[in-house]
Design a protein around this nucleic acid. Structure first.
Lengths: 252, 252
DNA sequence: CAGTGGTCTAGACCACGTA
DNA sequence: ACGTGGTCTAGACCACTGT
């Protein structure tokens, strides 16, 4: 399967896709927080030296994707993560818990810096011996374990992670602030909790769980592979869409 | 002639969205099968009496959604359901099995016409007492059960279903041929197999399963609610996307 | 080589919401 | 009323690709 998402450096990216990438980068990096007003179309027209049609095409694409909201007379704004948004899921696990009205907490269960094992290479797609950081933690919703997180980070792509203890901030939000992801792959399946995961989640070994695996890349370089394990009935993925319009998916 | 897919009365649909809806309707109804060449841009320009820009915008949107593929010099074609396509999932369970290289079969386990129970109303969103058809069947991949299907169809929206025995064709493909869906909602979660489902799938009661629930509407009217139950490790949902480009999701 | 889609322009009119 | 986005036009040039 060819990855059509990657922008080949040598190619000639279209102008409107460059505008999309620029705005997207500012949003995902947190440079433009939710609610921030994006420059007006005519301002971007001046910045990029192009016609209004080209700017409009780019912003319309971002609006379809749910990254921005557009209001006549008012302007365009970075969208606030809504209950059902493709971004919510990747922005923050904490937000999932918050949307349940429960207090959020997370606990580190393990942290190890190592050279990539065979398993790490399969998960991340890095070369043999490349430095990686393994992080295992648990997210809690109130008094109950909500989600088990088993993550590997490529220290080649994100060297700064080696000095981060992830005591104040969870790995997910921290990574997002470091490197906006440019493409992602999700794998969703059901599975039985293994011993370690069952213990962390305080469920029986072999209990049904929803497993969400996510790999992200930035500019074609692997960033992280993470495996979230949710106890059954504690989590549900929801997606609504029409065939040819934008798709929204989230969690509830 | 099949009815147009979506035509919200009262609203003022833009011209390019009307083109999108037209082409989408022909594809989802099967009128234009996979591989069918859709009219050239300049032909649609003539049909709709608009500029090429407007047609191009509509077709570009359909291409992003994965409904069509565009090739220079050759033209635009209805996309064949590929291994990873948002459409594959809704087009056919049989295609999932076929993509595994296994022979497909399905068996009816139950069929009942009734007035909507309280549970049916919740699943379908129909009024009390509305006629519905309940269908339970199993999809097999070679010698092994692949998926359990528990479906309710609104006979108000699809009256023809009352006379269909679903002996030759499974309910999914049959419904798709009757009424192209205009919107859908998916809920994905992990769960433990109940007694009846475990028996049908030949797994232990309480075994981990991936449960996919789907509701579809056509022109705002509820069509069907279906609950697919896959034994764990037999099925996996995959989704790849970039924030602002089209999203593809499917099953593997 | 010819024809298709991909992209872009420099205008235009309209709907709508804020002021 | 004004300024924004939403949409559309009638061209144009280019890249790619199938014949």
């Amino acid at each position: 399967m060819v990855d059509r998402a990657v922008e080949t450096p040598g190619s000639a990216p279209s102008l409107h896709s460059r505008i999309v990438a620029d705005v997207e980068g500012r949003i995902l990096s947190g440079d433009w927080p939710p609610g921030h007003r994006i420059p007006y179309e005519h301002e971007l027209t001046g910045e990029y030296g192009c016609s209004r049609m080209t700017v409009s095409k780019a912003l319309a694409q971002l609006a379809r994707a749910g990254l921005i909201e557009r209001r006549r007379k008012a302007g365009s704004f970075v969208a606030r993560p809504r209950s059902q948004s493709a971004l919510l899921e990747i922005r923050d696990v904490a937000a999932e818990v918050a949307s349940l009205g429960l207090p959020y907490a997370f606990a580190m269960l393990g942290r190890e810096k190592r050279r990539a094992t065979r398993a790490d290479r399969g998960r991340l797609g890095v070369k043999a011996g490349a430095p990686v950081l393994s992080v295992i933690c648990r997210h809690d919703a109130g008094p109950r374990p909500f989600c088990h997180e088993d993550r590997v980070i490529s220290l080649t792509t994100i060297p700064g992670a080696a000095e981060e203890a992830f005591e104040a901030v969870a790995p997910g939000p921290w990574l997002l602030a470091q490197a906006p992801w440019s493409s992602a792959e999700h794998r969703i399946r059901a599975g039985a909790a293994d011993r370690a995961t069952a213990e962390a989640l305080r469920v029986g070994e072999g209990a049904p769980c929803l497993v969400v695996e996510r790999r992200t890349w930035t500019a074609g370089e692997p960033v992280t592979h993470v495996k979230f394990t949710y106890p059954a009935n504690a989590h549900e993925l929801v997606a609504r869409f029409t065939p040819s319009q934008g798709e929204h998916s989230g969690s509830a």
